[in-house]
Design a binder for these strands. Structure first.
Length: 508
RNA sequence: GGCGCUAUCGUCUAGGGGUUAGGACGGAAGAUUCUCAAUCUUCAAACCCGGGUUCGAUUCCCGGUAGCGCUACCA
C-alpha cells in the first residue's frame, strides 16, 4: 500500500525551506522561506529547514552561516532542521528501490566534460539508447567489474504518456514524458543528485506542500515521476514567481552585487518586519489594498490563492559611481546609499519605523549609534528619538539626522548658513547675540523657549523664521533639522550657549 | 534549437465580458509649518500586438512577439 504524503488525516501541513548552501542568503530565498513560514504558521503546520548540501564541490560553511545569519535577523524560526548530506543512506535506498523496480538504469557513459557532445542532433539530449536498453545482466556484469556509472531514471517516453500535476499557483500542468530527459539519480561517485535527494527527503519528512521558486516548475514533472516510482503520492506543489532585477534577469551577486543579499538590508538599517513586509508584496497580494502589515497580519492574511504568476522586479538601482551624498562619511564603507534600494522597501521601512513605539525605536537605534562611536546614554536616546522618528527612513539615518546631538563639538559648517532668509550677516549676528542673552535665563522647556524667542523676533520686527534659522544652524550645524525648541530642550542650556557663542565668533 | 511559464501605469499590484480600469511606491504641483520631515489635497501615468468568439473584449480562445525558466553525473 503506497504511503501517503499529503495525508488529509493529519490536516496540518508540513513545509520546508531547502536552500543549497552555495552562496549567501539572497532576497529570493528569503522570500521563499517567508512564504513557507507564513503558510505553516497560518495553518498551524510545521516549518522545516533542510540544508540541501549534496553538492560538496560548491558548499561552503560561510554560506551556511550566511543563511542562519539572515534568518536570525529576520527573526524567522523553524521547527525541525536537517542536513541532506547526513541522509545519504535514505537517498541511496530510494534510488535502489527505483532501480529494483526497473524504473532506473545504469549509464556507463563517462561523465562529459564538454557541453555539446552528448546533445542529440535535434538539439536536446534525452537519453542514451544504448544504456537505456542495456540488459540487466550486462549492466550487473559491468557494475561488478567496477566500471563507474550514473543511475538514470527511465522516463516513460513511449505511447505519448503525459505526466501531470496540479500546482496551487499555476494550475493544471502537463507535459509529455517524451519531452523529459532521463535525468540522473546517482552520480558516478555514488552521490545522489538534487532531484533524488530532494524527493527522498520530502517523502521521508512527510512534506505536504512544496512551496518553492518557479524555476522548479519544469523540474516538478521529474519529481512527480520520482515520488510515484518510489511508491509515494506526490505532495501539493505551489510555485512562486521569481524575483528579478530591473533588467529582467534573475538576481545574482555577480551581476547585481550586495543589493541581492539579505544582510545588506540589515546593515542598511531595515527593520526585519519591514523587509519581510516588502518581500511579501512581491508576487503576493492580500487583495484588499493593504500594504503595511505586521508579521501577525501577514500570517493572518496569507494564502496560496493570493500568489501571483508573473515574475516580480525588485526595483533597485544598479550600483553606480555617482557623487557621494551628504553625511555619507558616517556610514559604513561598504553600505549602499538609500537610492540604491527599491523605493517601496524604503517607504515601507519608514512606515514601520513610524509605527514603532518610541521606546522600542530608541532601543533599536542605540546600538547603531554606539557602533558609530558615540557614547550616548539610553535616556538621552529616548529623548532624541521622537525628534527624528518622522525624519528617518532607515535606522542608520539616525547618524545623519541626529548627529549634532551626539558630538561634543559641531563639525565645521559654512557660516553663511547662519544668515536668515532675506537677511544679512548683521541680522544673523544680532539674532545670535539676542539668543545668547535670552537663552541664558529662560527655562529650557518648549513653551518658555517658544515664547521667549518669538518675543525676541517681534522686538526686532523680524519673522519668526528669520529668528530661528541662525539659532538652528548654530546648534545643529545645518538648516534642515528637527523643530527648534524640542531640539534645544534636549541639547540643554550649556551646549546651546556654547554653540551660539561659537557661531557668533564665526560670523565675523 | 526543444519543452514550459508569464504578459494591467516606470515599479509592486487590484480587477474583470459592458468600470471614469482601483490602490500603493516613485514623480509633479499645492496646502500646512520655525527649516527639514511627517501629514493633507490635486495632477500625470497602464490593460504587448494581431486575429477570432460575442451585441460588446483589457478580461475568454488561437496565433505572434517579448521576457523568464528548464533542457548537467548544479541545485
Amino acid at each position: 500500500m503506497p504511503e501517503t504524503l499529503n495525508s488529509a488525516s493529519l490536516g496540518k501541513p508540513r513545509v520546508r525551506f531547502a536552500p543549497s548552501p552555495t552562496g549567501f542568503l539572497h532576497v529570493g530565498s528569503a522570500r521563499t522561506f517567508i512564504f513557507n513560514w507564513l503558510y505553516a504558521r497560518r495553518m498551524g503546520g510545521t516549518m522545516i529547514l533542510r540544508l540541501d548540501d549534496t553538492d560538496v564541490e560548491r558548499n561552503t560553511d560561510a554560506s551556511v552561516n550566511s543563511i542562519f545569519e539572515g534568518l536570525k535577523w529576520l527573526e524567522l524560526d523553524w521547527d525541525e532542521e536537517y542536513k541532506q548530506s547526513e541522509r545519504g543512506e535514505l537517498h541511496r535506498r530510494m534510488a535502489d528501490t527505483i532501480f529494483q523496480k526497473g524504473l532506473a538504469y545504469r549509464d556507463f557513459t563517462p561523465a562529459h566534460t564538454g557541453d555539446s557532445e552528448r546533445s542529440g542532433a535535434q538539439g536536446t539530449w534525452l537519453f542514451n539508447p544504448g544504456m537505456r536498453e542495456l540488459s540487466r545482466e550486462e549492466s550487473d556484469r559491468r557494475a561488478s567489474a567496477g566500471e563507474p556509472f550514473a543511475l538514470r531514471f527511465r522516463v516513460p517516453r513511449e505511447g505519448g504518456q503525459m505526466i501531470r500535476f496540479t500546482d496551487a499557483v499555476y494550475g493544471e500542468q502537463m507535459k509529455a514524458g517524451a519531452d523529459i530527459e532521463d535525468f540522473a539519480l546517482l552520480r558516478s561517485d555514488g552521490m545522489p543528485t538534487y532531484h533524488l535527494a530532494s524527493c527522498a527527503d520530502d517523502a521521508d519528512l512527510r512534506i505536504s506542500d512544496i512551496i518553492r521558486g518557479q524555476d522548479h516548475l519544469s523540474n516538478t514533472y521529474k519529481h512527480v515521476l520520482l515520488f510515484e516510482a518510489a511508491g509515494f503520492t506526490p505532495p501539493q506543489f505551489a510555485h512562486l514567481p521569481l524575483l528579478v532585477a530591473p533588467d529582467g534577469t534573475k538576481l545574482s551577486k555577480r551581476r547585481h552585487g550586495p543589493i541581492v543579499s539579505v544582510t545588506t538590508y540589515r546593515d542598511a538599517g531595515f527593520l526585519p518586519e519591514a523587509f519581510i513586509n516588502f518581500l511579501c508584496l512581491l508576487g503576493w497580494s492580500p487583495k484588499n489594498d493593504r500594504e503595511q502589515m505586521s508579521r501577525q497580519e501577514l500570517i493572518d492574511a496569507f494564502s496560496l490563492e493570493g500568489i501571483n504568476r508573473a515574475n516580480a522586479v525588485v526595483n533597485f538601482k544598479e550600483p553606480d559611481v555617482g557623487p557621494t551624498n551628504v553625511g555619507r562619511a558616517l556610514l559604513p564603507a561598504n553600505s549602499l546609499p538609500e537610492e540604491a534600494f527599491d523605493a517601496k522597501a524604503v517607504w515601507l521601512n519608514a512606515e514601520h519605523i513610524r509605527s514603532l513605539p518610541i521606546e522600542e525605536l530608541s532601543q533599536r537605534l542605540l546600538p547603531i549609534v554606539r557602533e558609530a562611536g558615540f557614547n550616548v546614554a539610553p535616556e538621552k536616546m529616548l529623548r532624541i528619538t521622537p525628534l527624528i522618528r518622522e525624519r528617518i527612513k532607515l535606522l542608520r539615518d539616525v547618524l545623519t539626522a541626529a548627529d549634532f546631538f551626539f558630538v561634543d563639538r559641531l563639525p565645521p559648517y559654512d557660516p553663511s548658513e547662519l544668515i536668515p532668509q532675506k537677511g544679512d550677516a548683521a541680522m544673523a549676528k544680532k539674532v545670535l547675540e539676542k539668543a545668547r542673552a535670552v537663552l541664558a535665563n529662560v527655562e529650557f522647556k518648549h513653551d518658555p523657549l517658544d515664547q521667549a524667542l518669538r518675543a525676541a523676533a517681534q522686538e526686532f520686527g523680524i519673522k519668526a523664521g528669520q529668528m530661528f534659522q541662525p539659532i538652528r544652524v548654530a546648534v545643529c550645524g545645518r538648516k534642515n533639522a528637527p523643530p527648534l525648541f524640542e531640539t534645544l530642550e534636549v541639547l540643554g542650556r550649556e551646549t546651546t550657549l556654547a554653540r551660539i557663542e561659537q557661531a557668533i565668533s564665526r560670523i565675523l
